[in-house]
């Protein structure tokens, strides 16, 4: 160390600090992996959630599953393997629709998920409405309705 210039010593010191920090951050993040998630899919909820425990359930709203009655609304949320019926009475966000992503907070009551809040989650695709219509006309539409 003695024959290194101060500049080199500071540089190496900084590099060591950064490496240690990077490692520490990686360890913390991997330890937190399960807790940082904002919501769980239907499969996880069915496997892990206790009855009455407040959790967030996220997934896609199943096509043709939305039913409205005087108690509110019910719909199926799926992760393509499992789906859970959700019941909710309250205001729905603009983007709530069949085939779209949704995140609901509430509790499991038997096999039914009683939601207190419903949030819409949209994907990262942006396109003009005309383009979407054109793709549907041409039959090459890959997205949701």
């Amino acid at each position: 160390m003695a024959d290194l210039s101060p500049k080199m010593r500071r540089g190496i010191g900084l590099l060591l600090i950064l490496t240690a920090l990077g490692l520490a951050a990686m360890l913390v993040l991997s330890a937190l992996r399960d807790h940082v998630v904002f919501f769980y899919g239907p499969t996880d909820i069915q496997a892990k959630a206790k009855q009455g425990q407040i959790v967030r359930l996220g997934g896609l709203v199943v096509d043709d599953s939305i039913q409205k009655d005087q108690d509110g609304i019910r719909f199926q949320v799926t992760d393509q393997t499992t789906s859970i019926e959700v019941r909710y009475s309250g205001i729905l966000p603009d983007l709530f629709r069949e085939g779209q992503g949704v995140i609901t907070e509430g509790r499991l009551d038997g096999d039914i998920f009683q939601a207190d809040t419903v949030l819409a989650k949209h994907d990262e695709t942006y396109m003009p409405a005309e383009v979407a219509d054109l793709l549907k006309d041409q039959g090459v539409w890959k997205g949701q309705e």
Binding site: R33, V37, F38, G58, I103, L119, K121, H122, D123, E124
Partner: peptide, 14 residues
């Protein structure tokens, strides 16, 4: 990408 989030994924740098 790492976690489930309400925020959607990247649209440009992906």
């Amino acid at each position: 990408d790492w976690w489930n989030t309400l925020h959607q994924g990247s649209s440009v740098l992906r």
